[in-house]
């Protein structure tokens, strides 16, 4: 029996079960929406407590980050994420989990090369490409602003 790689790859497709997308999407919508709503609740609470809006804008995501770090440490975040998929990945909780989980996991390799270096193994690219995009936009904005366009 002769079987080239291309034929085999097509053959395999019929065997691989698809992800249960409608169910995943509903879970992502409900959990993701709830996390945003929780953030909104903190946002309004902090404003209600009389904090300046500029501070509240920072404190709100920080609250979600702290909660995520605690949930990650107790080993419950990954259980929620297994159900929620993109629902926990896309909000700032996904970023916080991406920093906290390798930090805990690589403790045995030391505080410098373990915790310090591995902290950014997943989240690093987010910071790198977000910053790069902002530099490009900053340069464009400089010229547009100079000509009074924005």
């Amino acid at each position: 029996m002769n079987l080239d790689a291309k034929t085999y790859q097509n053959y395999v497709k019929a065997y691989a079960k698809k992800s249960p997308s409608p169910k995943n999407c509903i879970a992502a919508f409900l959990v993701g929406g709830s996390i945003c709503l929780l953030a909104e609740g903190f946002y309004r609470l902090y404003l209600h407590l009389g904090l300046a809006e500029a501070s509240v804008r920072i404190l709100t995501p920080v609250t979600i980050i702290v909660l995520t770090a605690i949930a990650t440490g107790f080993g419950v975040f990954d259980c929620l994420a297994k159900f929620a998929g993109a629902g926990t990945l896309v909000p700032i909780s996904g970023f916080a989990n991406a920093v906290t989980s390798p930090a805990i996991d690589n403790k045995a390799e030391g505080l410098v090369m373990g915790v310090g270096a591995k902290m950014f193994i997943i989240a690093g690219p987010v910071i790198v490409y977000g910053t790069l995009a902002s530099v490009i936009w900053g340069v464009i904005y400089y010229f547009l602003h100079g000509r009074g366009i924005v």
Binding site: F29, G32, I35, G85
Partner: peptide, 9 residues
């Protein structure tokens, strides 16, 4: 918020 998550899913 949920909509952003659904697109990613």
């Amino acid at each position: 918020g949920g909509g952003f998550c659904v697109i990613a899913q």
